[in-house]
Amino acid sequence: MRFDLIFKHADMFLDSIVMTLELTVASLAIGMLIAMPVAVLRTMRLPYIDAVLRGYVFVFRGTPMLVQTYLVYYGLSQFEFIRDSFLWTVLRSPFNCALIAFSLNTGAYTAEILRGAIEATPKGEIEAAQAIGMSPLRMLRRIVIPGAFRRALPQYGNEVILMLHGSTVASIITIQDILGAGRTLNGKYYLAYEGLVTAAVLYLALTFLIAGAFGIAARHLQAHLRPASTR
């Protein structure tokens, strides 16, 4: 292991951590904005709209994020009318392309997680809300959505970790994320694994932090589900 070379490029790796976090956090945020309406609308099973939303989830969960990113980045840029339109000001940047592909992808997964959690709302909670005369919208806001978020927490934690790991796809469309920095190190010094091991360790550390944060959140938000003696 050439630790000297890794530490010599500590700056590059620090920048790359910022890049990976920016991409992951921004994608998750936009993905959540997509997922919430999609999940609620899907539980209502509206004609036509449901078919469209199912199609969205089907396509983005059914194809690899690598392919989606490639299509957004290299695919769309092949069309001259796109390059000539205002869309190109957005799509010209690799970061935006990654953000679009990642957000749509995590949006589809998150929508399914939320939908499952909404549909798992205990009947008793609904009946109680109706019994005291809540309107459907108020019930959604006060009972169903908060409960669904609590139930979805462990699964969503997984999705966050998968999204962090999935963001490595960005390195193939010229973005210097953590994996990109590792590959640069390998290429620069003809190394076989130093760059990749460094990247792996950094992802491991970030995953550890994320898992820890979700663990703490779960302890607080799901406190009411634990046996009384441990509360």
């Binding site: 290299y74 840029s77 092949q78 390059r83 190109w88 193939i172 010229t174 990109g180």
Partner: peptide, 18 residues
Amino acid sequence: LGLYGSEEDIYLDLTAGR
């Protein structure tokens, strides 16, 4: 800099104007 995995990808983006 745009960092590419292969020269072919560089030429794709050069023609695209990225």
